[in-house]
Amino acid sequence: MDVELIAVGAREDVLRRIRTSIGTPAANAPAIEAEWNTLPREYNRVGSLDREAVLEMLDERLRDYDASVIRIQSGAVAETIAKQLTERGKHRLVIPKGLAEALGEALPAGFEFVVDEGLSTTELDSFEGVVTASTVAIAETGTIVLQNVAGEGRRAPTLVPDYHLCIVRAGDVVENVPEAMTRLAATASLATTFVSGPSATADIEMTRIKGVHGPRFLDVILVT
């Protein structure tokens, strides 16, 4: 079936109908931009808490949505990863390209870390977990933002395995959503995933259940 032939002229028709319905003469791009700039934005665009309070809030809100959080000083990343993976009983993990560079430390010995170079879905399904860095974290909502960059990688590896260990640097933690969007604006076109706790559902009697299709376990190492 040739899809091109299904709705011939629809584009022009829809746009014409919209213009007729709006009823005012079409504005030009600068005028529309000028109007957009006047939209009210009196909500909090910048946070008001001090650094430590922001980190504490992230810690609390991540826990509130069933993630576990380990706070450490820089330099202890590798040993903490090792400790956490041992505690969880995870040995074979997929990692994105450039993870060690992003973390600023070599990965611990004693585990099998496989770099994702375009692994198939079935291959990803065979891993016990995934370890990544992160771009931004939002304290107010307990959110970690991942993008397709070195140290974070493609979306599938953080989705298919059942366990995600994510390293967040304190400098990447912002207080609220607008601050995060401002930081992300420059890389807006990259594939981006906001993760707020492990996969969950409340579809059955509004009871929150941890873990449906995404990773059921999310551990966060917060590095100051």
Partner: peptide, 22 residues
Amino acid sequence: ERMNPYNSLWTGVDPTQKGGDG
């Protein structure tokens, strides 16, 4: 919820041919 567990944002397709994202 303060934020739902997952938000996905993507733009077109990843131009990487083999092993691209999505």
